[in-house]
Design a protein around this nucleic acid. Structure first.
Lengths: 351, 351
DNA sequence: CTGAAAGCGCTTACAG
DNA sequence: CTGAAAGCGCTTACAG
């Protein structure tokens, strides 16, 4: 399991000390920029460090100091741009304080997640940021992580435990998106894509329902269309919107991938998104601005969320007395072309 | 710089030993599944480990054994899907052998790259996988990394040093793509997008030129169009293809992002990609299959490259006597709709 | 099969 | 301002 390094003798503090006739303690103090060391001594030590190509062994230092300068990040999979952006944000924020990111991925498997957590915890990270796999068991996670390492759970609900939570405001995001379409005159609005059993999908559907009820529009069951959250699936299912008359004139999509797929599926059926049909996505992935028609969407800014998660976990590391909190990140509606112009109540555009 | 962990006493090997009346050595042997320990003793120890919620301190073990169970991965930025996929592949392969990924990102800055490397090397990784930032200095990197940690350089050329190289076969990939368009009957073929000073762009242009020369077609300077390698820029520059008559009928694109942008730019000018104009991308990002028309492209399979890089570095870790090699990963043409049907030499389709 | 002892590379009181 | 000594949590010969 372990990699065996060529046990070539590395140059150590003691080598530096011998090299310039001081003790290890002095070298250590120089390394820590302590003001206790005489300038001349300091200069001699520093020169010797360069001369011998000494490299500091942070693991040894951490062991002795009982500290840690790493944070573990456990996500689903980096090939999902949402998580990749989140990870980039985490790494960026940790990097600025000289902390390193230990990466682990679960591939949405609970068993793998437990194994990954159990492995990462052995590296004694200062904290853990976890995007839990679907179906995660909070109690099991608590048991593995233990009480001494601050944990932050991102993005997915987990039956409450003693950890920080950073959640997206799915409910209000979907409500805002729906209200946007209502304000443009749409009445028959579908919620397209996603799996009912995913908590984020459930929350988004609830926000959508809330807005529809508030507008006095009874929900039609055929307006709720499930798909796997991928572009391809969404493109294939586009037809499901039009099996009954009167068909919806607009849709809130579970996420941008689904929305982009729906745009393709609509085009393949001769309908022009943003003209014959209005849609709003979720996430604001880079492509949303670049596609044609550009995609109106609810921005989640995963990179900023990553920075936020890292800062929160660092705060808890620095002061373990802080108690865990629940933070809800707001989401912003970005209006682009795909939601189209205002229409009249028959579902036609004002000309 | 360092995070200070609440110095709460952690349960240690000695606690377990005391807890069941054996020595630390015995507990250590149990942890390593050594056959030297009596079954009954082993069972007692294991029970005690669970009872006390002991967690192994891998850093301490690594220090004592002079081993490492981490590999550092330094990339540009995770928000680039190509690198995100590569990182996912690296992490996947490392995970299966119980090795952890230390992440670092350069944001394409040489200064930051040097700082990140200097920081990561202090964690004594067993090896380093580096996707060098543009303009990297091989000598500086050698100096920072030192001679004892195997290094693998991915994707970008770096003046030769004592490291493994995993390169993409840009030249042949571009040649293959160009030959595909030539075989369809195209003669006026552009090379669209990318920056001339990037080594991968240069190599791809060379492959393209080679195929054109081999077909006896003199290159027109106006067929070489530079853009930043983004979708938006590419969409904006689409017009540059048509400033002079006769305009090209096809283009090799620097990468898929550029190709997708060009598709949008063409559509905005009333030209139908795959009908009025043929194009081939580079990378085979997931979107290439899902866009409309679907994108013909040269597949680089970054995830497989990541696995390959990880396996290579692990091999060197296990046997430091192996000398560094240069591996060129082959690239595969994937034919989809965007390169269109065969045309006649006037640039019209066969009907 | 088990235990006492030394040591991985660092830091930190404590004396001087 | 500098040095001798103990110790972070583990492993590994070496005896028994």
């Amino acid at each position: 399991m372990l990699k065996r390094l060529a046990a070539q003798r590395k140059v150590t503090l003691l080598d530096i000390a011998h090299g310039c006739g001081v003790s290890r303690a002095t070298v250590s103090l120089v390394l820590q920029n302590s003001p206790l060391v005489h300038v001349a001594t300091r200069a001699r030590v520093k020169a010797e460090i360069v001369r011998q190509c000494y490299v500091y062994n942070r693991a040894a230092a951490n062991l002795r100091q009982r500290t840690s300068s790493s944070v573990a990040l456990v996500i689903n999979d980096l090939s999902n741009p949402f998580f990749a952006e989140f990870a980039a944000g985490v790494d960026e924020a940790l990097g600025t304080v000289g902390c390193v990111t230990l990466l682990g991925s679960t591939g949405e498997s609970v068993a793998r997640q437990n194994a990954v957590l159990a492995s990462l915890i052995e590296y004694a990270p200062a904290g853990i940021i976890l995007c839990p796999a679907e179906g995660s068991d909070g109690a099991a996670i608590s048991r593995i992580v233990g009480a001494h390492t601050p944990l932050l759970v991102f993005n997915r609900e987990l039956p409450d435990g003693d950890w920080d939570v950073l959640a997206l405001d799915n409910h209000n995001g979907a409500r805002t998106a729906t209200e946007h379409l209502l304000a443009l005159g749409h009445r028959r609005i579908a919620f397209f894509g996603g799996h009912r059993d995913s908590s984020s999908c459930r929350e988004r559907r609830e926000g959508y329902s809330a807005a529809m009820s508030a507008a006095g529009i009874p929900l039609q069951p055929q307006w709720l269309i499930e798909t796997s959250p991928t572009r391809l699936e969404a493109a294939r299912q586009a037809g499901a919107l039009f099996v009954r008359d009167p068909a919806p004139t607009a849709a809130i999509c579970y996420n941008d991938a689904v929305a982009l797929g729906l745009q393709l599926g609509l085009a393949a059926r001769g309908r022009r998104p943003g003209h014959d049909f209005a849609l709003v996505g979720f996430d604001d992935i880079p492509e949303a601005a670049a596609t044609l028609p550009s995609l109106s969407t609810i921005a989640t800014d995963p990179r900023a969320r990553g920075r936020q998660a890292a800062e929160r976990i660092l705060a808890r590391v620095h002061d373990p007395a802080i108690s865990p909190t629940r933070t809800i990140a707001p989401m912003q509606l970005v209006v682009r072309e795909s939601s189209g112009p205002a229409i009249n109540t028959n579902g036609n555009r004002h000309e």
